[in-house]
Each structure stands twice: as C-alpha cells, then as structure tokens.
Design a protein around this nucleic acid. Structure first.
Length: 164
DNA sequence: GCCAACGTTGGC
DNA sequence: GCCAACGTTGGC
C-alpha cells in the first residue's frame, strides 16, 4: 500500500491547515507564481498576519487571492513548502519593507515559502459574498484588511467545489 | 480617485 | 493606558 503525504499527516494525527493569502496582481500575481514555481511571501508588516504566517506548517494549502484587482477574488492554490522563514527585506534599507527597529538576533517579521499548485478561473469576491457569510469566510467581511487569513477545512472544501 | 475601515504611532 | 492623528488597504 502506497501512502500519500496527506495520509501520513492523518496517521500522525497532525491536522493540515488552510489559508487565504492576498497579493495585488500588479505587484505579484498568480501568473508570477506559476512562472517562479516557488516564492518567498515577503513584505507582510501586520502583526496579526505575521502571527498567522508563523503558525503555518509545511504542507498547508492556501488560496491565492488577487486584491486591488478587477474583479478581486481567489485565482489559485499554493502549498506551504517552508515554514518560519525570516523575511530578509526587513533588514534591507533599500527595500520598501525595511524595518529599522527589527534586530538581526530578534527578527520581527517571519514568513513562508509557497509553491504554485494550480491556477483557475477567478472565484470573484462577489461570488464569495453570495456563497459565504462573513463569519464563514473573513475575506468577505467589509473593511477586512488582513492579508493572511485562516480558512476552515469545511469552507476550503466548499470553495474548492466552486472551481470551474 | 474616493473614502470607509482600521491598524499604528506618539503625546499626554 | 488612552485616544487623536495619521497612514494604509482595498473595494467601488
């Protein structure tokens, strides 16, 4: 019997986690990730989002969400391939994400490496609003600015069924 | 381009 | 520790 990685997770009693991560397609979109295959998710400078990034584990899946897009929405899936990576841009004075208050021996900003899994036709914010309540899916909440959000397994599965 | 939402900063 | 001012996000 051949076991998949997910089977091992189940056997070990580990639960896989699911996420939604935003990026502006003009800055870094799903086609950029498809080209690069793997990317370092740098530049997050919000503590709540950082805390979610820190709790990600290898094998977790995340929806790729295009923000500031016409229309905004979910456009693909990626897989976390490296957890708790120190975001190097915090120490780079030439970076937009430079943080002068972050110390090299106590970095403030951690992130992940994520790999391209698939792209699909957009599940628009409009559709997400029609399908989910703000309690079920945080991204449909008005005024939601968090760029990294957890997604419950049940909701992840329901979104997956909307993929055409 | 507007502006509501909301996180962060800094004076007190 | 409070909260006003300010800056940013992100939909529209």
């Amino acid at each position: 019997m051949k076991l998949s990685a997910v089977d091992y997770w189940v056997i070990l009693g580990l639960s896989m986690q699911y996420w939604l991560m935003k990026s502006e397609p003009d800055v870094y979109g799903i086609t950029d990730l498809e080209r690069d295959r793997i990317t370092l998710w740098d530049g997050v400078r919000n503590y709540q989002a950082r805390n979610y990034l820190k709790s990600m584990e290898i094998g977790d899946l995340a929806f790729f969400y295009h923000s500031n897009a016409k229309p905004p929405g979910i456009v693909g899936v990626m897989k976390i391939v490296e957890a708790r990576v120190v975001d190097p841009t915090q120490f780079d004075p030439n970076s937009d994400y430079y943080d002068a208050k972050s110390l090299t021996d106590a970095p403030r900003w951690y992130t992940v490496r994520a790999a391209f899994v698939r792209e699909f036709s957009i599940i628009s914010l409009d559709t997400l609003r029609q399908t989910f309540t703000p309690e079920e899916l945080g991204v449909v909440r008005q005024g939601n600015r968090l760029s990294v959000l957890p997604v419950q397994k049940e909701i992840f599965d329901r979104i997956s069924k909307l993929i055409s």
